[in-house]
Design a protein around this nucleic acid. Structure first.
Lengths: 127, 127
DNA sequence: CAGGATCCAGGCCGATACTG
DNA sequence: CAGTATCGGCCTGGATCCTG
Protein backbone atom coordinates (compact mmCIF):
# COMPACT_ATOMS: atom_id res chain seq x y z
CA UNK A 1 0.00 0.00 0.00
CA UNK A 2 2.58 2.41 1.04
CA UNK A 3 4.52 1.63 -2.06
CA UNK A 4 2.20 2.99 -4.70
CA UNK A 5 3.30 6.56 -4.71
CA UNK A 6 4.64 8.85 -7.33
CA UNK A 7 8.03 8.12 -8.75
CA UNK A 8 9.25 10.97 -6.64
CA UNK A 9 10.59 8.29 -4.37
CA UNK A 10 12.90 7.19 -7.08
CA UNK A 11 14.46 10.46 -7.89
CA UNK A 12 13.41 12.19 -4.74
CA UNK A 13 15.35 12.18 -1.56
CA UNK A 14 15.82 8.88 0.15
CA UNK A 15 17.05 11.13 2.88
CA UNK A 16 13.57 11.67 4.16
CA UNK A 17 12.92 9.91 7.39
CA UNK A 18 9.87 8.24 5.98
CA UNK A 19 11.61 6.87 2.93
CA UNK A 20 10.80 3.19 2.55
CA UNK A 21 14.27 2.30 1.38
CA UNK A 22 15.56 3.01 4.82
CA UNK A 23 13.74 0.03 6.12
CA UNK A 24 15.55 -2.20 3.69
CA UNK A 25 18.84 -0.62 4.52
CA UNK A 26 18.23 -1.39 8.13
CA UNK A 27 17.92 -5.04 7.24
CA UNK A 28 21.00 -5.13 5.10
CA UNK A 29 22.67 -3.05 7.68
CA UNK A 30 23.04 -5.67 10.29
CA UNK A 31 26.06 -7.85 9.70
CA UNK A 32 24.31 -11.18 10.01
CA UNK A 33 21.72 -10.75 7.30
CA UNK A 34 24.39 -10.33 4.69
CA UNK A 35 26.36 -13.29 5.93
CA UNK A 36 23.34 -15.56 6.16
CA UNK A 37 22.30 -14.77 2.62
CA UNK A 38 25.84 -15.47 1.52
CA UNK A 39 25.96 -18.73 3.40
CA UNK A 40 22.74 -19.86 1.77
CA UNK A 41 23.78 -18.99 -1.73
CA UNK A 42 25.08 -22.40 -2.71
CA UNK A 43 22.02 -24.24 -1.51
CA UNK A 44 19.92 -24.89 1.52
CA UNK A 45 21.36 -25.53 4.90
CA UNK A 46 20.26 -26.67 8.30
CA UNK A 47 20.32 -24.49 11.34
CA UNK A 48 23.38 -25.95 12.97
CA UNK A 49 25.12 -25.97 9.64
CA UNK A 50 24.62 -22.26 9.27
CA UNK A 51 25.78 -21.73 12.75
CA UNK A 52 29.00 -23.53 12.00
CA UNK A 53 29.52 -21.73 8.73
CA UNK A 54 29.00 -18.27 10.07
CA UNK A 55 31.70 -17.79 12.57
CA UNK A 56 30.83 -15.72 15.57
CA UNK A 57 27.07 -15.74 15.23
CA UNK A 58 25.19 -16.62 18.37
CA UNK A 59 22.24 -18.94 18.32
CA UNK A 60 19.98 -16.11 19.25
CA UNK A 61 21.14 -13.83 16.50
CA UNK A 62 21.01 -16.56 13.89
CA UNK A 63 17.44 -17.39 14.81
CA UNK A 64 16.48 -13.75 14.85
CA UNK A 65 18.09 -13.08 11.50
CA UNK A 66 16.49 -16.11 9.89
CA UNK A 67 13.08 -15.12 11.23
CA UNK A 68 13.50 -11.67 9.81
CA UNK A 69 14.52 -12.97 6.43
CA UNK A 70 11.64 -15.41 6.43
CA UNK A 71 9.22 -12.65 7.28
CA UNK A 72 10.58 -10.61 4.43
CA UNK A 73 10.05 -13.50 2.07
CA UNK A 74 13.72 -13.86 1.31
CA UNK A 75 14.26 -17.18 3.01
CA UNK A 76 12.03 -20.24 3.13
CA UNK A 77 11.94 -22.40 6.22
CA UNK A 78 11.07 -26.06 5.81
CA UNK A 79 10.49 -28.37 8.72
CA UNK A 80 10.92 -32.09 8.12
CA UNK A 81 8.92 -33.95 10.76
CA UNK A 82 11.45 -36.41 11.99
CA UNK A 83 13.09 -37.26 15.23
CA UNK A 84 15.12 -35.33 15.80
CA UNK A 85 13.61 -32.47 13.90
CA UNK A 86 15.29 -31.36 10.71
CA UNK A 87 14.88 -27.80 9.53
CA UNK A 88 16.15 -26.51 6.24
CA UNK A 89 16.62 -22.95 5.14
CA UNK A 90 16.67 -21.92 1.52
CA UNK A 91 16.76 -18.66 -0.34
CA UNK A 92 13.56 -17.82 -2.16
CA UNK A 93 13.53 -16.35 -5.63
CA UNK A 94 13.42 -12.90 -4.15
CA UNK A 95 16.22 -13.77 -1.81
CA UNK A 96 18.36 -14.89 -4.66
CA UNK A 97 18.01 -11.53 -6.37
CA UNK A 98 19.75 -10.01 -3.40
CA UNK A 99 22.88 -11.72 -4.50
CA UNK A 100 23.81 -9.21 -7.18
CA UNK A 101 23.79 -6.04 -5.08
CA UNK A 102 25.43 -7.76 -2.16
CA UNK A 103 28.07 -9.16 -4.42
CA UNK A 104 28.76 -5.66 -5.73
CA UNK A 105 29.29 -4.44 -2.22
CA UNK A 106 31.52 -7.33 -1.34
CA UNK A 107 33.67 -6.77 -4.38
CA UNK A 108 33.96 -3.12 -3.61
CA UNK A 109 35.12 -4.03 -0.13
CA UNK A 110 37.78 -6.36 -1.40
CA UNK A 111 38.93 -3.95 -4.07
CA UNK A 112 39.23 -0.97 -1.76
CA UNK A 113 40.19 -2.54 1.50
CA UNK A 114 43.84 -1.75 1.01
CA UNK A 115 43.26 1.89 0.24
CA UNK A 116 40.87 2.29 3.11
CA UNK A 117 43.24 0.71 5.58
CA UNK A 118 46.11 2.84 4.35
CA UNK A 119 44.01 5.96 4.62
CA UNK A 120 43.03 5.09 8.14
CA UNK A 121 46.61 4.60 9.20
CA UNK A 122 47.62 7.90 7.67
CA UNK A 123 44.71 9.60 9.35
CA UNK A 124 45.58 8.16 12.73
CA UNK A 125 49.25 8.97 12.37
CA UNK A 126 48.57 12.60 11.68
CA UNK A 127 46.87 14.58 14.35
CA UNK B 1 42.02 -5.69 16.27
CA UNK B 2 43.77 -4.46 13.15
CA UNK B 3 44.66 -7.44 11.03
CA UNK B 4 45.62 -6.47 7.49
CA UNK B 5 47.69 -9.56 6.66
CA UNK B 6 47.24 -12.91 4.96
CA UNK B 7 45.73 -12.80 1.52
CA UNK B 8 43.91 -16.02 2.28
CA UNK B 9 41.30 -13.86 3.83
CA UNK B 10 40.56 -12.29 0.51
CA UNK B 11 39.37 -15.35 -1.26
CA UNK B 12 38.44 -17.20 1.86
CA UNK B 13 35.09 -17.12 3.54
CA UNK B 14 33.82 -13.73 4.55
CA UNK B 15 32.08 -15.67 7.24
CA UNK B 16 35.19 -15.79 9.31
CA UNK B 17 35.14 -13.42 12.19
CA UNK B 18 38.44 -11.91 11.19
CA UNK B 19 37.48 -11.22 7.61
CA UNK B 20 38.35 -7.66 6.66
CA UNK B 21 35.26 -7.22 4.56
CA UNK B 22 33.26 -7.24 7.72
CA UNK B 23 34.81 -3.98 8.67
CA UNK B 24 33.61 -2.41 5.48
CA UNK B 25 30.18 -3.88 5.93
CA UNK B 26 30.04 -2.37 9.36
CA UNK B 27 30.63 1.02 7.81
CA UNK B 28 28.11 0.62 5.08
CA UNK B 29 25.83 -0.95 7.57
CA UNK B 30 25.00 2.11 9.49
CA UNK B 31 22.25 4.07 7.87
CA UNK B 32 23.99 7.42 7.93
CA UNK B 33 27.04 6.49 5.92
CA UNK B 34 24.91 5.49 2.99
CA UNK B 35 22.80 8.60 3.21
CA UNK B 36 25.77 10.92 3.53
CA UNK B 37 27.45 9.44 0.50
CA UNK B 38 24.20 9.84 -1.37
CA UNK B 39 23.80 13.41 -0.26
CA UNK B 40 27.29 14.25 -1.41
CA UNK B 41 26.94 12.66 -4.79
CA UNK B 42 25.92 15.78 -6.69
CA UNK B 43 28.72 17.88 -5.32
CA UNK B 44 30.22 19.18 -2.14
CA UNK B 45 28.16 20.46 0.72
CA UNK B 46 28.60 22.26 3.98
CA UNK B 47 27.91 20.74 7.33
CA UNK B 48 24.63 22.42 8.00
CA UNK B 49 23.56 21.78 4.46
CA UNK B 50 24.06 18.07 4.95
CA UNK B 51 22.24 18.22 8.18
CA UNK B 52 19.28 19.79 6.48
CA UNK B 53 19.35 17.38 3.57
CA UNK B 54 19.53 14.25 5.64
CA UNK B 55 16.38 14.25 7.60
CA UNK B 56 16.62 12.87 11.06
CA UNK B 57 20.36 12.87 11.51
CA UNK B 58 21.64 14.37 14.73
CA UNK B 59 24.63 16.66 14.82
CA UNK B 60 26.59 14.07 16.69
CA UNK B 61 25.90 11.30 14.23
CA UNK B 62 26.60 13.48 11.23
CA UNK B 63 29.94 14.54 12.64
CA UNK B 64 30.81 11.01 13.57
CA UNK B 65 29.86 9.66 10.19
CA UNK B 66 31.79 12.33 8.34
CA UNK B 67 34.86 11.70 10.48
CA UNK B 68 34.67 8.02 9.72
CA UNK B 69 34.34 8.61 6.01
CA UNK B 70 37.21 11.06 6.08
CA UNK B 71 39.36 8.58 7.92
CA UNK B 72 38.55 5.97 5.33
CA UNK B 73 39.57 8.34 2.58
CA UNK B 74 36.11 8.47 1.08
CA UNK B 75 35.33 12.05 1.93
CA UNK B 76 37.55 15.11 1.87
CA UNK B 77 37.08 17.85 4.41
CA UNK B 78 38.07 21.37 3.46
CA UNK B 79 38.15 24.24 5.89
CA UNK B 80 37.90 27.75 4.50
CA UNK B 81 39.42 30.14 7.02
CA UNK B 82 36.74 32.76 7.24
CA UNK B 83 34.53 34.16 9.86
CA UNK B 84 32.38 32.36 10.41
CA UNK B 85 34.17 29.19 9.46
CA UNK B 86 33.11 27.45 6.30
CA UNK B 87 33.67 23.73 5.95
CA UNK B 88 33.04 21.80 2.80
CA UNK B 89 32.71 18.07 2.37
CA UNK B 90 33.34 16.35 -0.91
CA UNK B 91 33.53 12.77 -2.07
CA UNK B 92 37.02 11.64 -3.01
CA UNK B 93 37.66 9.50 -6.06
CA UNK B 94 37.44 6.42 -3.90
CA UNK B 95 34.26 7.68 -2.37
CA UNK B 96 32.73 8.16 -5.75
CA UNK B 97 33.34 4.53 -6.62
CA UNK B 98 31.01 3.61 -3.80
CA UNK B 99 28.19 4.99 -5.82
CA UNK B 100 27.74 1.95 -8.03
CA UNK B 101 27.31 -0.70 -5.34
CA UNK B 102 25.17 1.57 -3.22
CA UNK B 103 23.03 2.39 -6.17
CA UNK B 104 22.54 -1.29 -6.81
CA UNK B 105 21.33 -1.77 -3.29
CA UNK B 106 19.03 1.19 -3.49
CA UNK B 107 17.48 -0.04 -6.69
CA UNK B 108 16.98 -3.46 -5.22
CA UNK B 109 15.20 -1.87 -2.30
CA UNK B 110 12.87 0.07 -4.51
CA UNK B 111 12.20 -2.87 -6.76
CA UNK B 112 11.41 -5.31 -3.98
CA UNK B 113 9.86 -3.12 -1.36
CA UNK B 114 6.36 -4.06 -2.37
CA UNK B 115 7.00 -7.77 -2.22
CA UNK B 116 8.78 -7.51 1.07
CA UNK B 117 6.02 -5.50 2.66
CA UNK B 118 3.39 -7.90 1.38
CA UNK B 119 5.35 -10.85 2.69
CA UNK B 120 5.67 -9.24 6.09
CA UNK B 121 1.96 -8.64 6.32
CA UNK B 122 1.19 -12.20 5.32
CA UNK B 123 3.69 -13.47 7.85
CA UNK B 124 2.23 -11.38 10.63
CA UNK B 125 -1.31 -12.32 9.75
CA UNK B 126 -0.57 -16.01 9.80
CA UNK B 127 0.91 -17.52 12.86
C1' DC C 1 28.78 28.17 11.53
C1' DA C 2 30.93 23.82 12.71
C1' DG C 3 31.66 21.02 16.03
C1' DG C 4 33.38 19.19 21.02
C1' DA C 5 31.80 17.23 25.53
C1' DT C 6 28.65 15.12 28.51
C1' DC C 7 24.60 12.65 30.33
C1' DC C 8 21.63 9.16 29.90
C1' DA C 9 17.82 5.92 28.06
C1' DG C 10 17.00 2.21 25.03
C1' DG C 11 18.31 -1.62 22.29
C1' DC C 12 21.34 -4.96 20.79
C1' DC C 13 23.37 -8.88 21.64
C1' DG C 14 25.83 -12.55 24.19
C1' DA C 15 25.45 -16.04 27.87
C1' DT C 16 22.72 -19.18 30.12
C1' DA C 17 18.99 -22.32 31.17
C1' DC C 18 15.11 -24.90 29.54
C1' DT C 19 11.70 -27.40 25.93
C1' DG C 20 9.64 -30.58 22.17
C1' DC D 1 18.39 -30.89 16.78
C1' DA D 2 16.28 -26.52 16.69
C1' DG D 3 14.82 -23.64 18.90
C1' DT D 4 12.28 -20.28 23.20
C1' DA D 5 12.81 -17.38 27.37
C1' DT D 6 15.19 -14.42 30.36
C1' DC D 7 18.75 -11.59 32.50
C1' DG D 8 22.19 -8.25 32.15
C1' DG D 9 26.22 -5.57 30.15
C1' DC D 10 27.58 -2.52 26.77
C1' DC D 11 27.41 0.43 23.28
C1' DT D 12 24.66 3.33 20.21
C1' DG D 13 22.85 7.34 19.48
C1' DG D 14 19.72 11.42 20.84
C1' DA D 15 19.38 15.66 23.65
C1' DT D 16 21.57 19.30 25.67
C1' DC D 17 25.03 22.63 26.70
C1' DC D 18 29.25 24.86 25.42
C1' DT D 19 33.33 26.77 22.27
C1' DG D 20 36.30 29.14 18.48
Amino acid sequence: MVTTQSDSVLHGSPYRADCPTRHILDRIGDRWTVLVVGALWDGSARFSELRRRIEGVSQKMLTQTLRGLERDGLVRRTVHPQVPVRVEYTLTEAGRTLRAPLRALEEWSIAHLGDVTASQEAYDRAD
